[in-house]
Design a protein around this nucleic acid. Structure first.
Lengths: 120, 120
DNA sequence: TCGCAATATCGACAGTCATCGAACCAAGGA
DNA sequence: TCCTTGGTTCGATGACTGTCGATATTGCGA
């Protein structure tokens, strides 16, 4: 659990991506490329992306690990992927009794999308 | 060179990403996740992302390989990364005399951005 | 024809990563 | 105090990948 205390905040490179200029505007410097690439890398595995999309499309924006099923890998591997996504700042987690719920970290998707194709 | 004949078209998973529903709408199926992840994976390396941003932000939308410089890796490695980006359908190439010019494949960035954060 | 300059390819190597089963931890319930 | 269930961590392993130097290729000029 990376988010033990109240207000649950995203961590990792995802926060910093907000400060990156759009790819089409200026060439990224080394450190900007580093933080942005970390996010793309986290999304760059088919299984992980699938898990992420299950959470992102969950009706109440939240999904229990126990509902992440039929992705073709073992349960430890699912846990491994969830950790990677969390470490990249794309997900936050919340523990409730014996279950753990994951949700998409706020703002991350919009910021990343803006990196690729700036609105306007 | 993957684009020997006229009209230069993007190839690889990038074309298919247009058909993927937004991550926040429905969970991706296996093959959708596969094609989308291939694009994120291509952008998931810091050096490669930096090279890509240099091309994407080039004044006339096009950049000669000979202008890809100061990225901290050798020439063969740069060529390797350009190939990966081309194979992912993110770049197209054009040969002029001894020089090769790369540009961002049209529509790819917008489609990928829409995958993350659908407009509207 | 020769040499040079710009890129691409090849082969090798070191580091990273996805995956698994086994073991571990935490929280309820009997 | 045990057992069970949900999840994470550990250690190992095979596959993949970024990197390099060396080599090949292509086209231009002398």
């Amino acid at each position: 659990m990376t988010t033990p205390s109240a207000p649950t905040l995203a961590q990792g490179p995802a926060h910093e991506v907000q400060r990156c200029p759009p790819l089409t505007r200026t060439a990224l410097d080394t450190s900007q490329a580093e933080t942005a690439a970390a996010i793309f890398k986290a999304l760059g595995d088919p299984v992980r992306l699938r898990i992420f999309s299950m959470i992102a499309s969950a009706p109440d924006g939240e999904l229990c690990v126990c509902d992440v099923v039929d992705v073709g890998v073992s349960q430890p591997t699912i846990s491994h992927h969830l950790r990677k996504l969390r470490e990249a700042g794309l997900l936050t987690s919340r523990k409730e009794a014996t279950w753990v719920h994951y949700r998409v970290a706020p703002g991350v998707l919009a910021a990343t999308a803006a990196l690729l194709a700036p609105p306007g």
